[in-house]
Nucleic acid binder design. Structure first.
Lengths: 331, 331
DNA sequence: CCTCCGGATTGAAAGGTTTCACAAATCTGG
DNA sequence: CCAGATTTGTGAAACCTTTCAATCCGGAGG
């Protein structure tokens, strides 16, 4: 900027004004300064700007699993909102690792980003509250934390589980497999809870839900669960499966194809998330659709609101999922 | 830092030393300073650090399509390398939009990131060269640009196309559809080139390659192409299809299922990328596998080399893809 | 012709860190 | 016990902006 000022024959302050409040500088000098900036290939130093101004023009989303299309769709929604507010969105992938998540959070806090969006490994980890308390706004996405130090946006997983299993019951199924890692992941626990609720509403015992627990929610996990399911004696083998996400459902579907089990004839399948591949599967998959893009957009908007509003009150937004019925459950 | 120094009864310089060269300060004072930092919840200001130090500890990858698993896998490889070098990787999604790409590049340059990894919309856009010339190292990923202002890492797309189609020819096919947007995307153009080369090597005319041009490379595009293909008169309808990526292949597969075309009986299908879903498809997909993770890791390593090496020479690394044969082409 | 006004421009301080030459303290060996 | 070497610690400059009170200037109003 000093060089630009010298070359344009104006003061440093004027160059800054051209950059930040172009209306406060006469058209003639502004043109002159802009010409010099172009000629000198001036690139503003964001660190210095930020140091002085105190805040940055960057939002960040720390996502749980960059290879899951669900999260990239959520991120796309955030980008919509960030674009509208002249901000950049940086994506970080914690890949389910608390250490990576913590490292990213540290970096982001040091960078003094305008705000952090995160789908955390553990929504009640104290670190999130500490960061919020120290002044970097935090919005939790796709989980509802207990505390009140930040906003959150989520989808009602209990309800999602409920409509999925209610649908299976309506299709005449009574013995239903639940495939997922409900002991480790909060969302999955909730979806299973909804499943149990649907059973009980239909007058069925909890024992009608057969747990096939997986370590994660990948296609490979689904394949493995399928093999275990096929190995069950016919008398106790479920006639339907509710999978904690679509990746698992796709894996399950693949095993069914290999083992010549017909879907939905021998096994009806419901997935979760309704990712693009769900409709494109061998047997199009019935799935619980979450408003992914909307989820992301709302989260980013909440974050922006927190930085602009005075007297901001933390809100917990919960969206309602919907069931998309396709061939995998229609007999 | 000033507060920490005061509370610990040392000078500012000492606090800085604790942070940056802990070995230059005695264990006793170091412990004291660290205790005070913890107590005061000191968070280092990265802007100030960067302003003074001149460089940041951040790499960025501007990816072409965040919702394509291929790119998230590439990003995972970069993360491996970044982790090893105590750097953070920020992901930016240009979503094929040149304006978004340019906006991100501008932001990143202003942030003085340590380096930029990018799969550009146009690998020969002058902007990339300008950025590199101004001092921010740039590595082009999955494309090979013409200029010599930066390194690049890519996979031999011509060869990939060649082995795909050679395989189809070996399976007895002579009339082969090529599905993709080869007029707009460089990689796709190369894959098609390889396809033509394989035909010619087998003594077949270029006319044996039937172009079904799409606007992008999504599942929906694949579905559309499938309908067009099915609509062709039997006399000219290809017996095999080479799809420019797996998403397209999955869409095509779905249309085949809907229209009761058997795969590979009525139509053999080869995809490209070998994403996880390829093996999990209704009919497991033959696909050309690219070393995605390796691609990303190598790109990041090249970038780090550029920032550390003296007298760095720009390199163009090209990996060789391999064909993974599955049911979709085996009769 | 003077005063006052408003818009345009200026100059200097401030923001939080790193770096480096230098001072102080401690140790080593004779 | 001393010179010299080594280990620790210090202080101020520098990094590049933004901000804001102060100054400048031309013109309107009296």
């Amino acid at each position: 900027m000093k060089d630009v000022a010298a070359a344009a024959g104006v003061s440093l302050g004027t160059v800054s004004n051209v950059l930040n409040r172009p209306d406060r500088v006469s058209p003639a000098t502004r043109a002159k300064v802009e010409a010099v900036m172009a000629e000198l290939r001036f690139v503003r130093n964001e660190s210095a700007r930020q140091l002085r101004a105190g805040r940055s023009r960057v939002l960040a989303y720390v996502m749980l699993d960059g290879s899951n299309p669900f999260f990239t769709d959520v991120a796309a929604g955030m980008e919509d909102a960030a674009d509208a507010g002249d901000l950049s969105l940086f994506l970080c992938n914690s890949a389910h690792q608390p250490s990576r998540e913590a490292a990213y959070l540290g970096r982001l806090e040091q960078q003094r980003v305008q705000g952090i969006l995160i789908t955390p490994v553990d929504p009640d980890a104290p670190l999130l509250g500490e960061i919020a308390r120290r002044g970097t706004p935090v919005v939790v996405v796709d989980r509802t934390p207990g505390g009140t130090t930040h906003c959150s946006v989520a989808v009602d997983d209990v309800y999602g589980g409920e409509i999925a299993v209610r649908h299976l019951i309506e299709q005449g199924h009574e013995r239903i497999a639940f495939i997922g890692n409900h002991t480790t992941v909060g969302q999955v626990r909730d979806r299973r809870l909804g499943a149990l609720r649907a059973l009980s509403a239909a007058g069925l015992y909890p024992g009608h839900l057969v747990d096939l627990t997986t370590t994660a929610l990948t296609v490979a996990d689904g394949r493995g669960a399928g093999e275990r399911l096929a190995g069950l004696p016919a008398a106790v083998r479920p006639t339907a499966a509710f999978c904690a996400n679509d990746l698992v459902a796709l894996g399950l579907l693949q095993t069914c194809a290999n083992l010549r089990m017909r879907v939905p004839g021998d096994l009806a399948i419901v997935g979760y998330d309704d990712i693009e591949f769900a409709a494109a599967a061998a047997v199009p998959l019935t799935s619980v659709r979450q408003p992914r893009r909307r989820l992301g957009r709302t989260a980013a908007e909440l974050l922006l609101a927190e930085t602009t509003e005075t007297g901001h009150e933390h809100r917990k937004v919960v969206f309602t999922p919907e069931l998309v019925v396709r061939a995998s459950t229609l007999r």
